[in-house]
């Protein structure tokens, strides 16, 4: 379970939220500018909140009182965004391998092979990002985010820049990979079809979570 209490400022924007993501699939809803993406960035450790406590499975990721804020790569969390943000000077394979430094050579090759097969990217693993279609790039981004087996994957409008058909394919992949890997997914989306993949729904508005964990609403599947 990922529980959090955050109080953060970003320019004129003020985010003050408390909540928990206990379900395997949670969707974060809310109007533009409500603070959804900021919430994910804070939880992923990309931004430092002023006052915060973020705990994942009993382990403190951020604790302002103790001056603790684990760097993004040490939190067992990952994030995929609307733009795949693949490193343009590296091949798809090297992009996915970037987060796998801790494994020995053989284990690394096995894991890469496994993940590339999961997303169906073995056929274009040697290509650079600029040679990939939008759907292919997002599949590589998914593989890269999940290759190190994070406990929680934050997904910020992961299909936002894709057409409907490709978006559905990427979502099916995301669902399949998350189940396969046992990863909790916290998804920000405006798209009701994408939201339908989730088990729980959290509404963020004006920098506040309106229905924290205790009152999460079931989403009709």
């Amino acid at each position: 379970m990922l529980s959090f209490s955050l109080n953060a400022h970003r320019g004129a924007f003020h985010l003050q939220v408390e909540g928990a993501f206990a379900a395997d699939w949670t969707v974060v809803f809310g109007p533009s500018g409500a603070g959804k993406s900021t919430l994910l960035r804070l939880l992923a450790g990309l931004d430092n909140p002023r006052h915060a406590s973020i705990v994942l499975d009993g382990r403190a990721l951020t604790d302002s009182a103790a001056r603790l804020c684990l760097p993004p790569g040490h939190r067992q969390t990952s994030l995929v965004s609307q733009q795949p943000a693949l490193f343009p000077h590296l091949t798809a394979l090297a992009n996915v391998a970037y987060g796998l430094r801790s494994l020995d050579r053989a284990a690394r090759a096995r894991r890469l092979d496994e993940v590339l097969q999961l997303v169906g990217a073995t056929g274009f693993a040697g290509r650079r990002p600029q040679e990939l279609s939008g759907g292919q790039a997002q599949r590589v981004a998914l593989a890269r985010a999940l290759v190190a087996q994070p406990r929680v994957l934050f997904a910020d409008e992961p299909t936002g820049s894709l057409d409907t058909l490709t978006g559905e394919m990427v979502m099916d992949l995301l669902v399949g990979m998350a189940r396969e890997e046992g990863t909790t997914v916290v998804l920000v989306t405006h798209d009701a079809r994408v939201a339908a993949y989730a088990e729980r729904e959290v509404m963020v508005r004006d920098g506040r979570v309106l229905n924290p964990a205790s009152s999460q609403v079931e989403v009709a599947q």
Partner: peptide, 14 residues
């Protein structure tokens, strides 16, 4: 692009 910097940090780059 800051998104690339974020991606590297998320993947554990110091």
């Amino acid at each position: 692009d800051t998104a690339l910097v974020d991606a590297a940090r998320l993947l554990g780059a110091g």
